[in-house]
């Protein structure tokens, strides 16, 4: 089990590009909601903060059925603020490194375990995956040294930023906008591959529906 104890899931956003009337964390894949898969992966983590905003009541209701001891952090300004704002609220008070993931990410269990095996609460570790989503943030990854040297929108590279990271000693400033923009100031940063799907658009959802393999092959 990982030595990282604290987790922040950013699940406040509107998810408008998905064109469904629900937060992305409540989207169903294979009969289960994204947040159910995530909480299943995180079952051994002691302290989970979920940042909620859009349809917060529904998100809390769904999560509570699965796990009662989650701390819900409210971001009532979710319409006008970015993920950095949510992450800043969610991680407030944490004295050591924490795992963060966006509420719209689907990760296969073995992949997640492999990623967490490389993580510790004292060092930042960025999750990257093979480039496949629309509107990706690409990373310049050097496999020889295992670090990323740059985040960029173009040109396309082999890997993209996943929204999964263990963050240690990095201040997330809410005014900076995207989380990767906060990380940029600390480059180069250690990275590890983690095969996952980010569900931003209907096309991303179709891709995940075709390729995602839930634990146990179910």
């Amino acid at each position: 089990m990982s030595t990282v104890k604290n987790v922040v899931i950013c699940a406040a956003g509107l998810g408008s590009r998905l064109e469904l009337n629900m937060p992305k964390c409540l989207v169903e894949i294979g009969g289960r909601r994204l947040i159910e898969y995530q909480l299943d992966l995180l079952r051994d983590f002691e302290n989970i903060h979920i940042v909620v905003g859009f349809m917060e009541e529904e998100v809390m209701k769904c999560v509570k059925r699965i796990r009662k001891d989650v701390v819900f952090v409210r971001n009532p300004d979710y319409r006008t603020t970015s993920n950095s704002h949510s992450l800043n609220l969610g991680a407030r008070g944490f004295s050591e490194g924490y795992l963060t993931l966006d509420g719209d990410i689907l990760i296969e269990e073995d992949e997640f375990k492999r990623f967490m095996a490389k993580a510790n609460p004292r060092e930042t570790l960025i999750g990257i995956t093979e480039s496949k989503t629309e509107d990706a943030v690409y990373v310049d990854f050097d496999p020889a040294t295992g670090v990323i040297r740059d985040f960029r929108r173009s040109p396309k590279t082999a890997y993209e930023w996943t929204g999964i990271a263990v963050i240690a000693g990095i201040e997330i400033r809410p005014e900076v906008g995207y989380v990767f923009k906060n990380l940029e100031r600390y480059l180069p940063l250690k990275a590890a591959r983690v095969h996952c799907f980010e569900i931003d658009t209907p096309e991303d959802l179709n891709l995940a529906l075709q390729h995602f393999k839930p634990a146990g092959g179910g």
Binding site: K68, D69, V71, F72, R74, G93
Partner: peptide, 19 residues
């Protein structure tokens, strides 16, 4: 009006200790 919503005493205390 809240910043946090919790449903379990253990998570309440954990939260208060980190604030």
């Amino acid at each position: 009006l809240s910043d946090y919503v919790v449903f379990h005493e253990a998570s309440l205390c954990r939260l208060l200790k980190t604030l």
